[in-house]
């Protein structure tokens, strides 16, 4: 039986143009093993550079999804989610009955979780992760049925 293609989302937050372009390059790279990729650019105020525009055009040519603005579409339904840079604004998420409530949200200092089911598990990452905390955190991550999102 053929394995279905994986679904990967790249959420681009408030980052500078260089970083935004590299996020698009990463998204294009993630397609190389057959994954379906959804890029959600949440801060449309930063224009894409030449590299980002090329990556976007190539993604769209191969029917991958690139969205801009606050609507995050079905990006949160992806099996793996890379969040590039802080996402400040609240995002319009897919219907909560479609979102996996078991997904863990790992929150770095100074970041926010812009959208999630009310009962989702949010763990605040400290600046220093001591061995005991790392052990506990990893146990939670390994026990989770899905990849966590690091915000």
């Amino acid at each position: 039986m053929t394995k279905p293609p994986s679904h990967i989302a790249v959420i681009v937050g408030e980052v500078d143009a260089d970083r935004q372009d590299d996020a698009l390059r990463a998204a294009l790279g993630l397609t190389l093993r057959g994954a379906r990729v959804h890029v959600a650019i949440t801060n449309a105020a930063t224009p894409l550079g030449a590299q980002g525009l090329r990556a976007r055009a190539t993604l769209e040519m191969f029917n991958h999804t690139v969205t801009e603005g606050g609507a995050i579409g079905d990006a949160l339904l992806a099996g793996t989610i890379e969040v590039w840079g802080p996402v400040r604004a609240a995002l319009e998420s897919p219907p909560t009955d479609l979102v996996d409530r078991r997904r863990i949200h790992l929150l770095r200092p100074g970041h926010a979780v812009p959208t999630r089911p009310r009962d989702a598990l949010v763990l605040h990452l400290p600046d220093a992760l001591h061995d005991d905390l790392a052990d506990q955190l990893l146990d939670v991550v390994l026990a989770s049925p899905t990849n966590p999102i690091v915000w």
């Binding site: 994986s6 990967i8 390059r25 990463a26 294009l28 790279g29 993630l30 397609t31 190389l32 093993r33 057959g34 994954a35 793996t80």
Partner: peptide, 9 residues
């Protein structure tokens, strides 16, 4: 980037 895709997959 092929390594990126391979590792994530």
């Amino acid at each position: 980037q092929d390594d990126h895709a391979r590792l994530v997959a």
